[in-house]
Design a protein around this nucleic acid. Sequence first.
DNA 1: TTGTACGCGTTATCAT
DNA 2: ATGATAACGCGTACAA
Lengths: 344, 344
Amino acid sequence: MGEMTIKDIAKMCGVGISTVSRAINNHPDINPETKAMINATIKEYGYIPNNSARNLKRTEAKSIAVLVKGISNIFFSSMIKVMEEEIKKRKYTMVLHHVEFNEDEVDVALQLVKEKRLAGIIFLGGYFHHSEEKLKKLHVPFVLSTIGCPPENFSKKGYSSISVDDELESYHMVTWLIKNGHQRIAILCAALDDESIGKLRLDGYLRALKENQIEIDQQLIRPMSKEMEQYSLQSGYTLTQQLLEDGIKCSAVYAISDMMAIGACKAIFDSGKQIPEDYSLAGFDGTELGAFYHPALTTVRQPVEEMAQATAKLLFEVLSEKSIHKHRIFPAELIIRESTRKIK
Amino acid sequence: MGEMTIKDIAKMCGVGISTVSRAINNHPDINPETKAMINATIKEYGYIPNNSARNLKRTEAKSIAVLVKGISNIFFSSMIKVMEEEIKKRKYTMVLHHVEFNEDEVDVALQLVKEKRLAGIIFLGGYFHHSEEKLKKLHVPFVLSTIGCPPENFSKKGYSSISVDDELESYHMVTWLIKNGHQRIAILCAALDDESIGKLRLDGYLRALKENQIEIDQQLIRPMSKEMEQYSLQSGYTLTQQLLEDGIKCSAVYAISDMMAIGACKAIFDSGKQIPEDYSLAGFDGTELGAFYHPALTTVRQPVEEMAQATAKLLFEVLSEKSIHKHRIFPAELIIRESTRKIK
DNA sequence: TTGTACGCGTTATCAT
DNA sequence: ATGATAACGCGTACAA
């Protein structure tokens, strides 16, 4: 069981512990020759420093945690890649962590701050209704990236945020559908008590209808239930299947995520109907998958790469005290592809 | 910066450190009243034990690491869920970690063993060509789950494994295509120096052709290049686009992953052709996405849930010393859906 | 049942 | 440039 420690290496090299430590951590005060010698033996014996001990002792760990909400959330994978690059570029380490929909991301963050001596945190996706009290315990700067509703009760000075205007972009999408002749538009949305992007996207839908004097039909509003896997293929499928079974008339279906939109498409195909001939279908997010689907999905593209880059930038600006916390809203882009058409 | 420690809690409660420790870790030797009192103050002040310190001290941490190869690998997400349940059921903690395609999973594992005092490791997906020497340093039991080529040089007694017979199942798929009249079958496969599932699936393809006296046409073999994101939508698209541009005649395209198959479909649609009328298309994996695609993908379904369960079971059997290392191969299932058809 | 004291493996501080 | 030693926060053997 005898795992090797820094002591063993020190003995083998005939030097003191601190010298080995210096070699490992690239400290300046060390003879290049001894350093090379030590590194050679480290390599030879495959010694690996114990991270727990390091974190325990270290004052500053130069690491940033990225907490992603929803494990299979494919939407974030390209963002994570960009963030990793940005973080590495600045000689920091990225600690990636997935948080389930039913877990509390702030609790996880609190844990990690203690364990890893984080320099900062990036929260990616999900809701965000946490008490100010709890957030204050997070003694490191953090930024909320692509999170719908920043906590209104918490001072905006306490964190940075990056997002699109979900309400507005959703409004754009629905307005565009209306302009293309659609009057009866079903929406596949989040549970009605949602307080995050789900609510905002629904709000945009409602506003677009209202401004165009289209009466709101509750039958066309199809919220996910809590039991469904949120924003998933299957939830989109089930919701649309029920919509069709209920015999609700509509010419377009608007899903608040691309994954749900694909599920919706399948349900429509399975019922023997065509897209966009019988139903127009729109999604939200602008995922790669939507572009590869057949028919290619009309959707709202969030500029994920730019947003990821900006997220890292904001965080590091706060870290280097060059800047205070900021809140940036990115414009999204309506991408019209094959799954929608003009009617009448 | 004064983060709270166990000492502070002890002082506040007017008890010793060890008593607090006992309360936290549910030790038996403690007065229920003092325990309740301590827990109350812990909650009140939001004290969180430092995990680094705990890991440093603890001999056995009751945690299992799951190392997943390829961050956006959607194929594994359902397996991970099952594994988490199984691990929690046995009062262990799951530590999930993603490993990039260019990272060395054993190095990561070595790190984690030191840092987290792991009880065991599950490697999920990817290649596996590691030196026996390195694997021996991994002093904890591990199981290779859905990994193509277990290291032949390393004694099978040193680890457990769970997989399907990739060569055989691939052979089944291609044989079925041949039985349905396809003679010229293109394969979208891994780089030719691949030594893992990629190679095995290609081997199955080659054997099926050979047994049916179909000449192997190198033009029909389309390996991913190293620069492509492996097994991705885009790689499937690019490979198929090149195939079509090269004017290679074929009636079926067989992609060694569902994601690549979907990319291939898109390339065919974009060229103005239809599936399955002009080309039959087959995938591999049996992902949810393949079922939701339009047309629904013909594919090889790996019994992921059962395999995940078996993975956990094998590991815990070794941990409890009820059993030695085993190697289980699961049968996969040919799922015929809409993307393929009989010709001639 | 409870408290004291030591050590886990490392880094930081201070000598040398 | 290098080495000894004191923390870091916690679990646990042992004493009380």
